[in-house]
Simulated scan of single mutants.
Amino acid sequence: MTPDPRGTGSHPGIDTSVPHTARMYDYLLGGKDNFAVDRAAVRKVLEAMPDMPQSIRLSRLFLRRAVRYAIRRGVTQFLDIGTGIPTAGNVHEVAHELAPGARVAYVDHDPIVLTHARALLSREQQDRVTIVAADLREPEKILAAPEIRDVLDFERPVALMLVSVLHFLRDDEDPYGVVKRLCDGLAPGSMLMLTHASLDPDPETGLAASAGWANATSTMNMRTHEEILRFFDGLELVEPGLTATWNPDGEPTEVLERAIRNIWGYGGVAVKAPAGTHPDH
């Protein structure tokens, strides 16, 4: 029998004594793949930052907009690192609505995430979609993984998706170097798509909320707009730039965006230009 993830009993192979980042996000998104320890940690976050769930939902909205943006501009390959526990509107689902032949490689280092994600893939999708166990902190291993290279052609543009994951890298883990090394391995015309939690609305509140991750599997490292913008160095930032509600096509503003008081993060997309050009954002 599959254990009920909402319970508090014994679950072989799963540590339910420590808050788990992916399960905390799942709970914030209204999912059921979480435990009492995760919910307790989230409640601590929400005491300081009650509108955090709306910001996370905006990040999911960014993901869907960014995938559609890439497809419309001819990029049909996606490398999604830090996938998280699957929820509605995953990259391959959004991409295949517009381009059935789109190819997607999901990467996560968490066995829980990998188990859930693999269960969702049909046999027919396996030539276009793969799920690989790897760590964002080791970009060269990701780029060299045979399972990824079987699905993605790195001689052609790839959309690199780092959605709600970079804020789980500490400064001493060289997050800027990690992103640069990943982008260096991509062909010209590739895109970097990321969202990142920010302290900007209220630094004191942001730090208090970050404490909710202090004992989790990864800590929360919120950054300023200027610090997040650095991830795009050397790339051509797409309009409207790095914004709280990234909306490149002027589509109607979502009710969620109008209702939320503070948006605790930013999202943006940039393009890798041909060699010899000098992007300036």
Rank of each mutant, 00 (worst) to 15 (best):
V132Q: 07
A159C: 14
A36G: 07
A22M: 07
D174W: 04
P175L: 05
F35Y: 15
D38Q: 04
T224V: 02
I260Q: 13
A66D: 09
P203N: 14
R230I: 11
P111I: 10
D172F: 00
E204F: 02
L121M: 09
G268A: 10
Y69S: 11
G89A: 12
E173D: 14
N262G: 00
D38C: 01
G9T: 04
D135C: 06
E239A: 15
G84L: 02
W213V: 08
L63A: 12
S198Y: 01
G74P: 13
A134K: 08
H196E: 14
P146L: 06
L98G: 02
E93T: 12
P12C: 02
R23T: 08
H11P: 00
L162H: 07
G276M: 03
A88H: 13
N221E: 10
L186M: 10
W264A: 03
P252V: 06
Y25S: 06
R65D: 08
T16D: 05
P274D: 07
L98H: 12
V132R: 01
T87H: 13
I81C: 05
T243L: 13
V238A: 12
V91Q: 07
R230E: 14
D172K: 05
D233M: 08
V132F: 02
N247S: 13
R156D: 00
R137D: 04
Y106W: 05
P203G: 13
K141M: 06
D15N: 15
E140K: 07
V113R: 14
A211E: 15
R68V: 03
F62S: 13
H281S: 12
D200R: 05
A211S: 12
L162W: 05
